[in-house]
């Protein structure tokens, strides 16, 4: 999202307390798929806590990732489909995602749906394992892409 989107989202949340947006990217897969789900974003009236999906601003724009740890100074964030952690100051947080509209219609509440609660716990605990799996997966896909490009170039 650009600066206009950032201010627009901030304004919407300030005025209505809630916003529904179509996400972009794959960082929160498999829970949030950009072409399938719409994110409901609410302004935060409480302190962010572990497992929250927070919407915040970083140099790349606005992102929604999961909070892995909340310290006194900052929050450690990571997308469900990522393994690189990011440290974010509390001031950067714009709101949180209490749930999504699955397929654009059915509301899935992250805090009230049992499997969502279980998923967030398991996902956070398994970060190290996922890091290893994703590292290997990315290496293999990168190598495959390079070999394909090499094969095409030598045809």
């Amino acid at each position: 999202m650009n600066d206009k989107s950032t201010s627009s989202l901030r304004e919407t949340l300030a005025e209505h307390d809630i916003a529904v947006v179509q996400g972009k990217g794959t960082s929160m897969m498999p829970l949030i798929a950009n072409s399938r789900d719409r994110m409901c974003i609410k302004s935060l009236s409480r302190r962010p806590k572990k497992y929250d999906v927070l919407v915040y601003e970083n140099p790349r724009g606005i992102v929604a990732h999961r909070a892995l740890k909340c310290t006194d100074e900052h929050i450690v964030m990571c997308g469900d489909n990522q393994y690189v952690k990011e440290t974010v100051p509390y001031e950067a947080v714009i709101g949180y995602v209490p749930g999504i509209l699955r397929n654009g219609t059915d509301y899935l509440d992250f805090e009230k749906t049992k499997w969502c609660v279980a998923y967030s716990r398991i996902w956070c605990v398994s970060l190290f394992l996922r890091r290893c799996v994703l590292f290997v997966y990315h290496r293999i896909s990168k190598r495959y892409k390079n070999e394909s490009a090499y094969a095409r170039a030598n045809k």
């Binding site: 409901c40 209490p98 509301y107």
Partner: peptide, 8 residues
Amino acid sequence: REVAGENI
């Protein structure tokens, strides 16, 4: 839909 206590 009722989303986080709000009707939208």
